[in-house]
């Protein structure tokens, strides 16, 4: 998972990042609430870990803006030293999904994060086989069948397809896609990413006439949408009108 951490204590932030990395996640640390909010304009995360007492905007202010201004339902776990009942109640009522009081334990933190993500369906089906509409994706043999026929995909195309099919309806930032498919240290240009997206759109038939739309969102990323019948008809009609 791609996880943002808001924590102004460098030691604590390093420790949390270390734990998350060891568990195979991709942590992104922020020391100030404003910086995290800025990042959220352009980046998607699978979960946020928020400390309460940070400079400028505190954790609850950040949470309010995430929920009310960004309209984001990203899972939020508070990790803070504040242990008063009214603090816990306030954070949960403002939209936090879980609350942990420092000092936190590594395995418990990881388990809670995974539970949050599972409930949010962001790591839905780490199952080996995904069956969605006309697709059957086997993660063990790394094959995709469409209407029972195998689709010829490169390794990266396969990873990209799985990422989108596991996150239907969710807007994924370019950074998120790059990191998940190519890894944190890879240098991948926007053009390369766009080429791969375009290729899987064609190979998997992720187009309105097949009930899908893999839409680019300007300066942000992509979203795979499964269209209902009415939306399909509307979009197909629009496409035809545009073609005339």
């Amino acid at each position: 998972m791609r996880i943002a951490i808001l924590e102004d204590d460098t030691s604590q932030s390093e420790l949390l990042s270390h734990w998350l990395q060891l568990a195979g996640h991709h942590p992104h640390a922020f020391e100030q609430g404003a910086n995290l909010l800025r990042a959220l304009q352009n980046e998607s995360f699978d979960a946020l870990i928020l400390d309460w007492n940070v400079p400028d905007l505190n954790g609850v202010d950040v949470l309010r803006r995430v929920r009310q201004q960004l309209h984001s339902s990203v899972p939020v776990l508070f990790v803070t030293g504040r242990n008063r009942e009214d603090d816990i109640v306030l954070a949960l009522r403002e939209g936090a999904d879980d609350y942990m009081i420092k000092p936190v334990r590594r395995l418990e933190l990881l388990a809670r994060l995974e539970a949050l993500a599972r409930r949010a369906r962001h790591v839905q089906d780490q199952a080996e086989v995904l069956e969605i509409d006309a697709f059957r994706v086997d993660c063990q043999t790394r094959t995709v069948l469409r209407h029972g026929k195998q689709v010829d995909l490169t390794a990266k195309d396969f990873d990209l397809s799985v990422l989108f099919l596991r996150n239907i309806g969710r807007l994924l930032s370019r950074g998120h896609i790059r990191e998940t498919v190519w890894g944190s240290n890879a240098v991948v240009t926007s053009r390369t990413l766009d080429t791969h997206v375009s290729r899987i759109r064609n190979k998997l038939g992720l187009t309105p006439e097949h009930g899908w739309r893999l839409a680019a969102v300007y300066r942000y990323g992509y979203r795979l949408e499964h269209l209902d019948q009415a939306a399909m008809q509307r979009l197909t009609a629009d496409d035809k009108a545009a073609a005339v």
């Binding site: 204590d9 030691s11 604590q12 420790l15 007492n53 030293g81 420092k102 936190v104 590594r106």
Partner: peptide
């Protein structure tokens, strides 16, 4: 107070519960 708060939060995680 802030430094104490940070020490309380981080000490045990690093393996030093006495510092928390």
């Amino acid at each position: 107070e802030r430094a104490g708060h940070d020490l309380k939060g981080a000490g045990e995680g690093f393996g030093f519960p006495e510092l928390s």
